[in-house]
Protein backbone atom coordinates (compact mmCIF):
# COMPACT_ATOMS: atom_id res chain seq x y z
CA UNK A 1 0.00 0.00 0.00
CA UNK A 2 1.45 3.30 -1.02
CA UNK A 3 -1.41 5.76 -0.67
CA UNK A 4 -3.33 5.58 2.57
CA UNK A 5 -6.52 7.21 3.87
CA UNK A 6 -4.46 9.98 5.43
CA UNK A 7 -3.01 10.81 2.03
CA UNK A 8 -6.46 10.87 0.40
CA UNK A 9 -7.67 13.16 3.17
CA UNK A 10 -4.71 15.46 2.49
CA UNK A 11 -5.61 15.45 -1.23
CA UNK A 12 -9.19 16.38 -0.39
CA UNK A 13 -8.05 19.21 1.90
CA UNK A 14 -5.66 20.41 -0.81
CA UNK A 15 -8.35 20.50 -3.52
CA UNK A 16 -10.81 22.23 -1.21
CA UNK A 17 -8.19 24.77 -0.25
CA UNK A 18 -7.22 25.47 -3.87
CA UNK A 19 -10.86 25.87 -4.94
CA UNK A 20 -11.75 28.13 -2.02
CA UNK A 21 -8.64 30.24 -2.56
CA UNK A 22 -9.39 30.73 -6.24
CA UNK A 23 -13.04 31.61 -5.55
CA UNK A 24 -12.07 34.12 -2.87
CA UNK A 25 -9.42 35.66 -5.13
CA UNK A 26 -11.76 35.94 -8.11
CA UNK A 27 -14.37 37.71 -5.99
CA UNK A 28 -11.89 40.11 -4.41
CA UNK A 29 -9.49 40.25 -7.36
CA UNK A 30 -11.90 41.13 -10.17
CA UNK A 31 -12.83 44.58 -8.85
CA UNK A 32 -9.25 45.22 -7.72
CA UNK A 33 -7.80 44.22 -11.11
CA UNK A 34 -10.46 46.34 -12.82
CA UNK A 35 -9.55 49.30 -10.64
CA UNK A 36 -5.85 48.81 -11.39
CA UNK A 37 -6.54 48.64 -15.13
CA UNK A 38 -8.56 51.85 -15.26
CA UNK A 39 -7.58 54.13 -12.40
CA UNK A 40 -5.55 57.27 -12.83
CA UNK A 41 -4.95 57.44 -9.08
CA UNK A 42 -1.42 58.02 -7.85
CA UNK A 43 -1.93 55.19 -5.37
CA UNK A 44 -2.03 52.73 -8.24
CA UNK A 45 1.73 52.01 -8.17
CA UNK A 46 1.61 51.42 -4.41
CA UNK A 47 -1.26 48.94 -4.75
CA UNK A 48 0.52 47.22 -7.65
CA UNK A 49 3.65 46.83 -5.55
CA UNK A 50 1.68 45.45 -2.58
CA UNK A 51 -0.07 42.94 -4.83
CA UNK A 52 3.28 41.76 -6.22
CA UNK A 53 5.06 41.44 -2.85
CA UNK A 54 4.24 37.71 -2.37
CA UNK A 55 6.21 36.90 -5.54
CA UNK A 56 9.50 38.03 -4.02
CA UNK A 57 8.89 37.46 -0.31
CA UNK A 58 10.05 34.17 1.26
CA UNK A 59 6.86 32.21 2.08
CA UNK A 60 7.99 31.85 5.68
CA UNK A 61 8.10 35.63 6.13
CA UNK A 62 4.56 36.05 4.82
CA UNK A 63 3.48 32.97 6.78
CA UNK A 64 4.98 34.39 9.96
CA UNK A 65 3.12 37.71 9.69
CA UNK A 66 -0.15 35.99 8.81
CA UNK A 67 0.32 33.63 11.76
CA UNK A 68 0.81 36.57 14.11
CA UNK A 69 -2.15 38.43 12.58
CA UNK A 70 -4.50 35.46 12.81
CA UNK A 71 -3.34 34.27 16.23
CA UNK A 72 -5.24 34.87 19.50
CA UNK A 73 -3.26 38.06 20.19
CA UNK A 74 -3.44 39.40 16.62
CA UNK A 75 -5.84 42.17 15.59
CA UNK A 76 -8.53 39.76 14.45
CA UNK A 77 -8.19 37.65 17.58
CA UNK A 78 -8.46 40.69 19.86
CA UNK A 79 -11.50 42.11 18.04
CA UNK A 80 -13.53 38.94 17.56
CA UNK A 81 -12.02 36.47 19.94
CA UNK A 82 -11.53 34.09 17.00
CA UNK A 83 -8.25 32.29 16.53
CA UNK A 84 -7.91 31.55 12.81
CA UNK A 85 -4.36 30.25 12.97
CA UNK A 86 -4.17 26.45 12.55
CA UNK A 87 -7.72 26.33 11.08
CA UNK A 88 -8.87 25.70 7.51
CA UNK A 89 -10.34 29.22 7.29
CA UNK A 90 -7.03 30.69 8.35
CA UNK A 91 -5.34 28.58 5.71
CA UNK A 92 -7.67 29.92 3.00
CA UNK A 93 -6.92 33.50 4.05
CA UNK A 94 -3.18 32.83 4.03
CA UNK A 95 -3.28 31.05 0.66
CA UNK A 96 -5.36 33.81 -0.87
CA UNK A 97 -2.86 36.43 0.29
CA UNK A 98 0.05 34.37 -0.97
CA UNK A 99 -1.53 33.65 -4.40
CA UNK A 100 -2.91 37.17 -4.92
CA UNK A 101 -0.46 38.22 -7.68
CA UNK A 102 -1.08 35.04 -9.64
CA UNK A 103 -4.78 35.88 -9.99
CA UNK A 104 -4.69 39.68 -10.05
CA UNK A 105 -1.95 40.09 -12.63
CA UNK A 106 -3.54 38.05 -15.47
CA UNK A 107 -6.88 39.79 -14.85
CA UNK A 108 -5.22 43.19 -14.71
CA UNK A 109 -3.43 42.49 -18.01
CA UNK A 110 -6.64 41.22 -19.63
CA UNK A 111 -8.71 44.23 -18.53
CA UNK A 112 -5.97 46.61 -19.61
CA UNK A 113 -5.80 44.98 -23.06
CA UNK A 114 -9.57 45.32 -23.49
CA UNK A 115 -9.55 49.00 -22.54
CA UNK A 116 -12.65 51.12 -22.18
CA UNK A 117 -13.76 50.80 -25.81
CA UNK A 118 -16.05 47.75 -25.66
CA UNK A 119 -17.41 48.89 -22.30
CA UNK A 120 -18.44 52.32 -23.60
CA UNK A 121 -19.91 50.65 -26.69
CA UNK A 122 -22.00 48.37 -24.46
CA UNK A 123 -23.17 51.31 -22.33
CA UNK A 124 -24.18 53.19 -25.46
CA UNK A 125 -26.27 50.11 -26.35
CA UNK A 126 -28.21 50.45 -23.07
CA UNK A 127 -26.26 47.91 -21.03
CA UNK A 128 -25.91 48.95 -17.38
CA UNK A 129 -22.36 48.77 -15.99
CA UNK A 130 -22.98 45.35 -14.39
CA UNK A 131 -24.71 44.02 -17.52
CA UNK A 132 -21.84 45.29 -19.69
CA UNK A 133 -19.27 43.68 -17.41
CA UNK A 134 -21.00 40.31 -17.43
CA UNK A 135 -21.99 40.15 -21.12
CA UNK A 136 -19.06 41.93 -22.77
CA UNK A 137 -16.00 42.34 -20.57
CA UNK A 138 -16.00 38.90 -18.93
CA UNK A 139 -16.28 36.92 -22.20
CA UNK A 140 -13.57 39.02 -23.85
CA UNK A 141 -11.39 38.59 -20.75
CA UNK A 142 -11.99 34.82 -20.75
CA UNK A 143 -8.35 33.97 -21.39
CA UNK A 144 -7.31 36.22 -18.54
CA UNK A 145 -9.78 34.43 -16.28
CA UNK A 146 -8.54 31.00 -17.36
CA UNK A 147 -4.94 32.02 -16.69
CA UNK A 148 -5.92 33.50 -13.32
CA UNK A 149 -7.85 30.39 -12.25
CA UNK A 150 -5.17 27.95 -13.36
CA UNK A 151 -2.26 29.89 -11.91
CA UNK A 152 -4.10 30.57 -8.66
CA UNK A 153 -5.16 26.93 -8.34
CA UNK A 154 -1.77 25.46 -9.23
CA UNK A 155 0.13 27.90 -7.05
CA UNK A 156 -2.08 27.10 -4.05
CA UNK A 157 -1.69 23.36 -4.60
CA UNK A 158 2.07 23.73 -4.65
CA UNK A 159 2.59 26.03 -1.69
CA UNK A 160 4.40 24.78 1.34
CA UNK A 161 5.98 27.42 3.52
CA UNK A 162 2.91 29.53 4.23
CA UNK A 163 0.75 26.44 4.71
CA UNK A 164 3.16 24.99 7.23
CA UNK A 165 3.50 28.26 9.16
CA UNK A 166 -0.20 29.11 9.33
CA UNK A 167 -1.82 25.67 9.12
CA UNK A 168 0.67 23.50 10.96
CA UNK A 169 -0.15 20.33 8.98
CA UNK A 170 -2.99 19.07 11.19
CA UNK A 171 -4.38 15.87 9.56
CA UNK A 172 -7.89 16.33 8.12
CA UNK A 173 -7.84 20.08 8.76
CA UNK A 174 -4.76 21.79 7.47
CA UNK A 175 -2.58 18.95 6.25
CA UNK A 176 -2.21 19.32 2.48
CA UNK A 177 -0.34 17.27 -0.15
CA UNK A 178 2.86 19.29 -0.08
CA UNK A 179 3.20 19.03 3.70
CA UNK A 180 2.21 15.35 3.56
CA UNK A 181 5.03 14.66 1.14
CA UNK A 182 7.42 16.45 3.49
CA UNK A 183 6.13 14.40 6.44
CA UNK A 184 6.62 11.14 4.47
CA UNK A 185 10.15 12.09 3.52
CA UNK A 186 11.00 13.02 7.11
CA UNK A 187 10.12 9.48 8.27
CA UNK A 188 11.81 7.86 5.23
CA UNK A 189 8.51 6.70 3.61
CA UNK A 190 9.90 7.26 0.13
CA UNK A 191 7.31 5.07 -1.64
CA UNK A 192 4.42 7.23 -0.41
CA UNK A 193 6.39 10.41 -1.16
CA UNK A 194 7.03 9.10 -4.67
CA UNK A 195 3.36 8.27 -5.29
CA UNK A 196 2.11 11.68 -4.11
CA UNK A 197 4.86 13.58 -5.94
CA UNK A 198 4.16 11.71 -9.18
CA UNK A 199 0.46 12.47 -8.74
CA UNK A 200 1.19 16.18 -8.30
CA UNK A 201 3.44 16.17 -11.34
CA UNK A 202 0.93 14.46 -13.62
CA UNK A 203 -1.96 16.51 -12.26
CA UNK A 204 -0.18 19.83 -12.85
CA UNK A 205 0.82 18.77 -16.34
CA UNK A 206 -2.71 17.67 -17.27
CA UNK A 207 -4.27 20.88 -15.97
CA UNK A 208 -1.90 23.04 -18.00
CA UNK A 209 -2.35 20.84 -21.08
CA UNK A 210 -6.11 21.23 -20.77
CA UNK A 211 -5.79 25.00 -20.57
CA UNK A 212 -3.59 25.22 -23.63
CA UNK A 213 -5.93 22.98 -25.63
CA UNK A 214 -8.93 25.04 -24.56
CA UNK A 215 -7.11 28.20 -25.62
CA UNK A 216 -6.43 26.74 -29.05
CA UNK A 217 -9.97 25.50 -29.50
CA UNK A 218 -11.76 28.63 -28.42
CA UNK A 219 -9.51 31.50 -29.28
CA UNK A 220 -10.85 34.91 -28.39
CA UNK A 221 -10.33 37.30 -31.25
CA UNK A 222 -9.80 40.85 -30.19
CA UNK A 223 -9.56 43.06 -33.22
Amino acid sequence: MTIGDADLTALWVTLRLACMTVVVLLIVGTPLAWWLAHTRSRFKVIVEAIVAVPIVLPPTVLGFYILVALGPYGPIGRLTGLTLAFTFTGLVIASALYSTPFVIQPLHAAFEAIGKGPLEAAWALRASPLDAFVTVISPIALRGYISAIVLGFAHTMGEFGVVLMVGGSIPGKTRVLSTTIFDHVEVMEYAQAHALSAFMLVFSFLVLLGVYIANRRFPIHVS
Binding site: E120, A121, S128, I140, S223
Partner: peptide, 30 residues
Protein backbone atom coordinates in the same frame (compact mmCIF):
# COMPACT_ATOMS: atom_id res chain seq x y z
CA UNK B 1 -29.03 60.50 -17.16
CA UNK B 2 -26.12 58.08 -17.53
CA UNK B 3 -25.37 57.04 -21.11
CA UNK B 4 -27.11 53.66 -20.75
CA UNK B 5 -30.39 55.39 -19.94
CA UNK B 6 -30.25 57.77 -22.91
CA UNK B 7 -32.05 56.74 -26.12
CA UNK B 8 -29.10 57.51 -28.38
CA UNK B 9 -26.85 55.68 -30.81
CA UNK B 10 -23.10 56.24 -30.68
CA UNK B 11 -20.76 55.10 -33.44
CA UNK B 12 -17.13 55.49 -32.45
CA UNK B 13 -14.11 56.09 -34.68
CA UNK B 14 -13.27 52.40 -34.42
CA UNK B 15 -16.13 49.91 -34.90
CA UNK B 16 -15.79 48.48 -31.34
CA UNK B 17 -17.74 45.36 -32.28
CA UNK B 18 -17.87 42.69 -29.60
CA UNK B 19 -15.36 40.04 -30.73
CA UNK B 20 -17.05 37.14 -28.93
CA UNK B 21 -20.39 37.66 -30.71
CA UNK B 22 -21.26 37.17 -34.36
CA UNK B 23 -22.65 40.01 -36.46
CA UNK B 24 -26.28 39.12 -35.72
CA UNK B 25 -25.70 39.11 -31.95
CA UNK B 26 -23.75 42.35 -32.20
CA UNK B 27 -26.65 43.93 -34.08
CA UNK B 28 -29.21 42.66 -31.57
CA UNK B 29 -27.19 43.50 -28.43
CA UNK B 30 -28.83 46.88 -27.93
Amino acid sequence: LPIYERPLGYVFQEPRLFPHLNVRSNLLYG
